[in-house]
Every structure is written in C-alpha cells, then in structure tokens.
Lab assay of single mutants.
Amino acid sequence: MLDDRARMEAAKKEKVEQILAEFQLQEEDLKKVMRRMQKEMDRGLRLETHEEASVKMLPTYVRSTPEGSEVGDFLSLDLGGTNFRVMLVKVGEGEEGQWSVKTKHQMYSIPEDAMTGTAEMLFDYISECISDFLDKHQMKHKKLPLGFTFSFPVRHEDIDKGILLNWTKGFKASGAEGNNVVGLLRDAIKRRGDFEMDVVAMVNDTVATMISCYYEDHQCEVGMIVGTGCNACYMEEMQNVELVEGDEGRMCVNTEWGAFGDSGELDEFLLEYDRLVDESSANPGQQLYEKLIGGKYMGELVRLVLLRLVDENLLFHGEASEQLRTRGAFETRFVSQVESDTGDRKQIYNILSTLGLRPSTTDCDIVRRACESVSTRAAHMCSAGLAGVINRMRESRSEDVMRITVGVDGSVYKLHPSFKERFHASVRRLTPSCEITFIESEEGSGRGAALVSAVACKKACMLGQ
C-alpha cells in the first residue's frame, strides 16, 4: 500500500517536472537572447534605426563620474514606483581627507489618484512632500541643488532636461508624456511658492545606482535594477552614441532593455503563462523582457503555473481556492519566502493557508518547484541581457580580458534567497573573457542622484555659470 502511494507521488512529481521543464533555458538559448539583445542595442544607438529599435539606448548626458572633490548639501528625489523618497545628502571631506556622503531620508507613498490623475496632481503632491521634508529638517530658507531620480523612459536633451516617452509600472498621470519632466517639477514648486529649489540633474535609477557604486569602486561602469521592473545602464564610447554629437570619451546610456521583445525577438521563448500575464497587464505587448524578470510579474506567473497544475490534477487534489483564482493573489514576496523555507515546509504551508488552501507535504514541495522554475528562468533571462552589455563593452574597448564592476539594486536581487547566485553564475558562463565584480548599492537611487548633481554643480562652477 505504502509502495503504491510512494509510486503515485513519484509519478505525480515526474509529471510536474515535465510541465515545469518549459521554463528551462539551455545555454544556447541564452546565447541567442544575448546576441539578439546586442543587435537591438546597436539599432538603438544608431541614428537611422533608433526610432524602430525596441531597446532605445537613451543617452543620459552623464559623462563624468564623481571624483571626490564636490562638497555641499544636496536634496535628492526618487520616483520610480508607488513609494517616493526625499533625501538630504551631505557631501563633504571625511576623516583623513576621505570623501564622505551622509544621508537623511523619508519615504512617502503615492496615492492612487496622483498616479493615475493628471501630471499637475502628481507633481503638486511631490512638491508637497518636499515642503514637508524641508519643514522637518528646518531647511526651507536654503535654496538647495536638487537631483531627481526618475525611473521611467526619458529622452534627455541635457542633464536637466528630459522628455517622458511613456509611463510604465502602473503610472498613468495624463499630460506628462511628451513633456519635460524637470519643467513639470519646477512648475509645481513655483505653484507652491513656499520654498526654492535648483533642479540641476535628472537621472534614471540605473544611472543613480551606477554612480553610487562608483563611489565604492571606481571600476563600476554598469548599473542595473532588478526590482519591480528590470533595466540597466553602462558607459558607452561616445563615438557609438549617434544621437549625441561628439566622439570623445564616454557617456552613460540608459538601455531601457525592459522593452526588448516588443518587436518579436522573444516570441519563441514566451510561454502561455507569459501571454496571460501580458494580456492582463496595463501595457499589453510592451516591456516583454521586463515581464519575464521583474517583481511586478513574478508572483503572478507562479500563480498561473499553480492553476495549470491544479487543472492537471497534480496539486491540491485538483481544487483551487477562490483566493488562488484571484489575479495578483500570489505576491512576489511569497516566491522569495517559499524558496527561503528551511525544509520543514512550515513557511510554505503558512503562505498557502493564507490563500485558503490546506496543502499536503507533496503540495508544498511542488509549489516550491514552481517558484524555483519561474525565478530561475528570470535570473537566466536577466543574465543574457547583462552578458550582452558586458561583452559589447569588452569588444568596443578591444580588451582581451576586461575587469568590470556592476552596481545592482532592486528588491528581487536583494531579497530573493537564490536569485543573485543563479544570476551571477549564468552571467559568468556567458562572459568567459571578463572578470566581473557585483556590488549592491546602498540607498543607491538617492545618493547617486545627489552625486550626479554634485558633478553638475562642479561643472557649472568651472564653466562660470
């Protein structure tokens, strides 16, 4: 009897593995994704193909990295998701002549009506938060230079001027797309009239992360975010950046690689679950690469896999709870928690219980395998993109072996128990001629924006502006 049951459990697990095998990517698959990513990057950089390229390769006008001589107080704003952060950054000489960066910050959550109302409502709310922060720190009387981390696709015309191309991540505030974001912020500050600010720089969160990590390690020339969304930036040779005049030196390019796949480059790798996630998203047909990796989508992918296993009578005796059938019910943090389970399955059992399920031991094991399959594919897909960037940098610099540091931020990278190990191992397999160091950014977005502002202020002083 026991043997029969054991055989049935083994057969069930084997069927589960057959279904989950769809998520496995072979090294040849990853090399294919990497080569296609490089081709799209090239198209994004070139003037004649930029418009139709899915990977936009947006110039950021960040050319210099901090040298350690900029000092002063800077205000930093960070808008990239449902939370908005205001930070005071003091850049100065530390002990023994070292450079020191001290920060104080406060988080504000953005109400739904500000995210989806008008641009005026959104930026009025942001300036209200700045006003509140300055009151708390008794700094209303000071006109501070301000660095703005704005983590949406922007076409820069200068370091302090950028046109919002399109909202992502659930934002829909009308009247912002096609307009200068810094102008919208300046107008809102003017409307309030109770404080003055000098907006000197606007950067993407990947750029802010790279600059913040450069402060720790001067070989950091790539910034990457794996959180709600997924994106990367890197220092490109100016001669390859056709959208900006000049051939000397390097400029940081914001790849906006989340949109890779929007022209069909990933079609052969998309599964039924991916198509369902895409169809029910706020932007169907867009940001397809990001939807395979980002935390906004990972939990939902797992939920759809679990429903398939229920329908195949391989999980929960073929019956799903009402909660499990509800879109968004299986949160991405559950994926991390399930994979963090120590082996007694308590954590998995508790999560499934909150979803109205009474799982068996085998159910718990199957749910864990589903989570591992989805998150491992995410790590491997992400590795193909980064390997594409790094191999490109090595080739354009004609280096036999390139040493490089990548600064990384984002909740999936930082909080998932195995993502970074799987990701690092896969990147290294795909970049055999590179020695890569990964560092995690601390308060990256805010500190990085302030350091970019410090560079901009120093330049302005040198130019006598």
Rank of each mutant, 00 (worst) to 15 (best):
G92D: 15
D3P: 07
F195V: 08
F334M: 05
C252A: 06
M235F: 07
E421P: 06
S336L: 04
G183E: 13
W99A: 09
G318D: 12
F74A: 11
R275G: 06
I163T: 12
F330I: 13
E435G: 05
A379R: 00
E237Q: 06
H156M: 12
V33N: 00
L270E: 06
T149C: 15
F74S: 06
P284Q: 10
R447Q: 13
M8Y: 14
L270K: 15
W257G: 01
E421M: 11
L122Q: 06
M402E: 07
F152M: 15
D124E: 06
V154T: 14
A379Y: 01
N204W: 09
S174W: 10
K291P: 00
M139T: 09
P284D: 01
V200D: 10
F84H: 10
L25K: 03
A449N: 08
A378N: 06
V86H: 00
S375T: 12
L304G: 11
M37I: 13
E14T: 08
I126P: 00
E372L: 07
G81M: 07
V101I: 15
E70P: 07
Q287I: 12
F23V: 01
V406E: 00
P59E: 15
E48R: 04
G246N: 03
Y214R: 09
G147N: 11
K142F: 08
A188H: 06
E9I: 09
T65G: 11
G388F: 01
L352M: 09
C230K: 05
P153W: 06
E245F: 10
L58V: 13
G223A: 14
I159C: 14
L185W: 03
D194L: 15
S453V: 14
D4I: 03
E290K: 04
H416G: 03
E312H: 15
C129M: 04
R333P: 13
T49L: 09
C230G: 04
S151L: 06
M393K: 04
H105V: 07
E120W: 07
R303I: 01
E22S: 04
D158H: 14
I225V: 07
S131P: 01
E443R: 02
G117T: 04
D29C: 09
A384P: 01
V226A: 02
T116S: 09
F123S: 07
S281K: 00
L276Y: 13
G81V: 10
G388R: 01
A114T: 10
A6P: 08
G318L: 04
Q26W: 07
G81S: 15
H156I: 04
K296E: 07
D78P: 01
E28D: 08
L309R: 00
L165V: 12
I293V: 13
M202Y: 13
A449G: 13
R333F: 05
V335H: 02
A387F: 00
F423V: 09
G299S: 04
R46Q: 05
S212M: 03
D267T: 11
D344G: 08
A450V: 11
Y273P: 13
M402S: 13
S445L: 13
G227E: 08
Q347W: 06
L30N: 02
H137L: 09
K102I: 13
L301F: 12
K102F: 13
M8E: 15
G299A: 10
L307W: 06
G97W: 04
E442D: 09
L165R: 11
N313G: 10
G295I: 11
G80I: 07
E237H: 08
S396F: 09
T103L: 08
D29Q: 11
V71F: 05
L185P: 00
M202T: 04
N283V: 07
G227K: 00
L2Y: 13
L386M: 10
C230A: 12
L463D: 11
D158S: 14
M238P: 01
E435R: 09
G81W: 13
V86Y: 07
A11S: 08
G229N: 09
D194C: 13
V338F: 04
T342D: 12
E279I: 14
V310L: 05
R275V: 12
D158L: 10
L386G: 01
T65L: 15
R192C: 01
E268M: 12
L58N: 12
L306Q: 00
Q24V: 14
T168E: 15
C220K: 02
Q219E: 07
V154A: 11
R275C: 11
T362G: 02
C230R: 02
I293W: 00
K31I: 15
F150R: 11
A282F: 15
G388Q: 11
A6V: 13
E70S: 13
M37A: 05
R327F: 13
H137G: 04
K31H: 03
P59Q: 03
K15E: 04
D217A: 04
V401S: 02
I163D: 15
R186Y: 07
M235L: 08
Q347Y: 13
T326L: 11
T361D: 15
Q239R: 09
F23L: 09
A259M: 13
Q337E: 06
S131T: 05
I366W: 13
S64L: 05
G94N: 03
E96C: 14
V33M: 02
G318P: 15
R186F: 05
E322T: 10
T209A: 12
I436P: 03
S383I: 01
R155P: 04
S281N: 03
V199N: 08
M115H: 11
E40C: 02
G162T: 05
G261M: 09
K420G: 09
E221Q: 14
G343N: 01
E96K: 15
E312D: 11
E372D: 09
Q26I: 10
R186T: 05
P111I: 02
S426D: 08
Q98M: 10
K414N: 03
T326C: 10
L45I: 04
V55S: 00
G246S: 09
L314R: 05
V338P: 01
G162A: 09
R397D: 04
R394I: 03
G249N: 00
G92W: 07
G227L: 02
D42T: 07
G117M: 06
N254Y: 08
V62R: 02
M251I: 15
L164Q: 15
G246H: 07
F316W: 03
Q219L: 08
F152N: 15
N254V: 11
H50L: 04
A449C: 15
P284A: 09
L144P: 03
G44S: 03
Q26R: 05
S127D: 00
M8K: 14
E22N: 10
R43M: 12
A119D: 08
G229Q: 14
F423Q: 03
I439P: 00
G193R: 08
L164V: 15
M298E: 01
D262F: 12
K56V: 07
Q98T: 11
K104W: 08
